[in-house]
């Protein structure tokens, strides 16, 4: 039968896509709203025996002690949420009857776990204690963010600000103006735009020498300075519908949306070979170690399928757990952000030592972002081929291969 001829060579791809689609649908159907009730605990306030809701949105409650007959206000508990790097972060803020922050906590998140670990390991949450409800709670103004986890710190601050300002206005009668969130155009946005423009010029005008310049810039800035390598967490977050507010995350729109969009429109890979700082690091290591160890093409072709298996498993986990950060197994954050568990560090050492002898070990056999990149440029070429075929009035087969320039 004709359709069997079409299905057979694509069986694994169809199965992989089908299972991911089912998992994605399952995630959306089973998605539950944040349930603050489970985090309302009387033991939060010493001697409290009753909560009374004082705000609906964001939810906030007053805690009372009524055992002695008289009603004594012990404090407030208010919930909030803010966007992180790859997902949302839910917070709980305890407020004293006088209107000071007693404590702030992270309750749930779909953020990249490494960044949350970095924030929790710092004294960021402790620095929120004692602040007043009308304070700005803005990283860079009255709060210092956590180095290499600035976006997560900003998300937590936003959750606390949301709760505090709502309580200040509604319960304490304070006049708190809406915070003016400036459009963030800083060094990060400028450098990322410059690197992207240089890449577009280099690939479109075919100037391969620019590639080394971009790669060095990428290692220094995208890697070590900003720690903003595109990761599976970004892709997973996007597929789960996470889009950060643009004013403070302009870089995200330039980088995480701009690169795949260019790849799709031009049918050409630019992330892996030009802009990825981890790929560039491996290329430098191969210059040092020779990078001469390789497989015969038939073995290499088979081994390269490992990337697809890992990317499929990771995406499946992202969808089933509903958290994009959980499956980001890339060692990018460990190298550039100096964050990670023991297993992350061991993986990084294995990959970097391996990359001395096997050229781009990670990219060739393991990188899930490479898989996404390949699927995107292939889709782009197919669309271009179809459009060209339609314009020419005939079928045009897209050109195979993934040459960067």
């Amino acid at each position: 039968m004709n359709w069997m001829h079409w299905v057979r060579p694509r069986l694994w791809t169809l199965l992989a896509m089908g299972t991911l689609l089912v998992a994605l649908v399952f995630t959306f159907l089973s998605r539950r709203a944040f349930d603050h009730q489970q985090y309302l605990d009387l033991s939060l306030f010493d001697g409290a025996d009753r909560f009374e809701q004082v705000l609906k949105s964001p939810p906030a409650f007053a805690a009372y002690r009524t055992a002695s007959g008289a009603q004594e206000l012990l404090g407030y508990v208010a919930f909030g949420a803010g966007p992180g790097y790859a997902g949302s972060i839910a917070t709980r803020t305890l407020i004293s009857p006088a209107g000071h922050i007693i404590a702030a906590e992270v309750l749930e998140h779909t953020e990249t776990p490494g960044y949350i670990r970095a924030v929790l390991a710092s004294d960021f949450l402790r620095r929120l204690r004692g602040k007043e409800l009308a304070d700005a709670f803005m990283v860079g103004q009255d709060l210092d963010g956590v180095t290499k986890a600035t976006i997560s710190s900003r998300g937590i601050a936003q959750g606390v600000r949301q709760a505090s300002h709502a309580m200040g206005r509604e319960e304490f009668g304070l006049t708190i103006p809406e915070p003016k969130i400036p459009v963030n155009i800083g060094l990060k946005e400028i450098v990322l735009t410059a690197l992207l423009l240089l890449t577009v010029i280099g690939t479109q005008l075919r100037i391969p020498r620019l590639r080394w310049f971009v790669q060095i810039g990428s290692i220094l800035f995208v890697g070590f300075w900003f720690n903003s390598t595109i990761s599976l967490a970004n892709v997973g977050g996007l597929l789960l519908g996470f889009v950060p507010p643009w004013r403070q995350n302009l870089w995200w729109y330039i980088w995480v949306l701009g690169i795949p969009l260019f790849t799709l429109v031009r049918g050409q890979s630019i992330n892996c070979t030009w802009l990825c700082p981890f790929g560039a690091t491996q290329e430098l290591l191969a210059k040092v170690g020779g990078g001469q160890i390789r497989c015969r093409p038939e073995y290499e072709k088979r081994l390269r399928r490992v990337r697809f298996g890992l990317a499929w498993l990771a995406m499946l986990l992202v969808f089933l757990v509903g958290s994009p950060g959980v499956a980001g197994y890339e060692p990018f954050g460990t190298l550039f952000g100096f964050q990670g568990l023991v297993v992350h560090w061991i993986t990084l050492v294995v990959i970097l030592v391996g990359a001395l002898f096997v050229r781009r070990l990670w990219c060739s056999f393991l990188c899930p972002v490479g898989v996404m990149d390949e699927l995107t440029w292939k889709l782009g070429r197919r669309i271009r081929g179809l459009l060209k075929g339609r314009l020419d009035g005939g079928e045009t087969e897209p050109k195979a291969g993934g040459t960067p320039v």
Partner: peptide, 30 residues
Amino acid sequence: MKGSERIVFGLVLLAVVLILTTLYTEVKGM
């Protein structure tokens, strides 16, 4: 299989084991 191919296979296998351990650790820690 040549010696160089064994090295590549070994490195990839080791990395896959570490990646699976990472995924297990992160999901378990949720």
